[in-house]
Structure formats: structure tokens, C-alpha cells
Amino acid sequence: MKKVEIFDPAMCCSTGVCGPSVDPELTRVASAIYSLKEKGFDIKRYQLTNDPGKFAENSEVNNVLHEKGPDALPIILVDNQVARVGSYPSNEEFAEWFNVTPEELREKPKARVSIDINSLK
């Protein structure tokens, strides 16, 4: 199974509503990642201000950042290789990587999940 890691730029929230307008792209990506995680796939997401350590430690990501600066974000790694720089994968790409259909990425769980405060660190 493939491992996908997404390195987001600094932003307050993962849907991007704090910007001048909501970016539907970010909302789509957030939903797709949510669905994939629910299915048990190995997909992780790091946000610059929350997890700066991940950005500094990962040599692939750090190299891209030194070369292109913060505008290179988001950076997407697939199995530790840089797969995309400066934009998010489409649902089709996600589907291909994980061998699911793009439609499945729009399926949502029906119940709200309660969050374990301690896991937020």
C-alpha cells in the first residue's frame, strides 16, 4: 500500500476559510483525506505552523523549500518521493494511488465522531 504525505502551507485551518474566500479546492482535499483515513489508508497531513518539525526533518521537503521558498507548498510525497509541488492532487490521482474509485472519496461517514482531546497533543 502506498504512503501519502501532504505538507500544507501555514494556515489557520484546513479548509482555508480564513483566507479572503473559501477555497473549494481545500475543502475537497480535506474531505478526500478524511474519507481515505476512514478507510484505513496511510495518508497523513502536516501543517507548517503545527508540525514544523516534519518539514525540517524531511530532507525531500526541506530541499524543495530551500530551492523554491514557501510558495512551493503544498508539497505531496508518495512513498517518500516528491510527487507534486505547489498544488493538491485531484481526486482521480488520490483514487489511483490508493486503488479506489474517485466516487468513494466523496462518501462520508454518517455519524459525527467525537474527538479524543488527548490525541490532539
Binding site: 489557520c12 505552523t49 503545527n50
Partner: peptide, 14 residues
């Protein structure tokens, strides 16, 4: 419900 959001920079306080 998704544990990211605005807690973002302040998640240490949760």
C-alpha cells in the same frame, strides 16, 4: 470533529 481547524497553532492548549 476533525481535530485540525483553528486549534491549529494553539493545539498545545487543548
Amino acid at each position: 470533529t476533525h481535530g485540525a481547524s483553528c486549534l491549529g497553532p494553539l493545539s498545545g492548549l487543548a
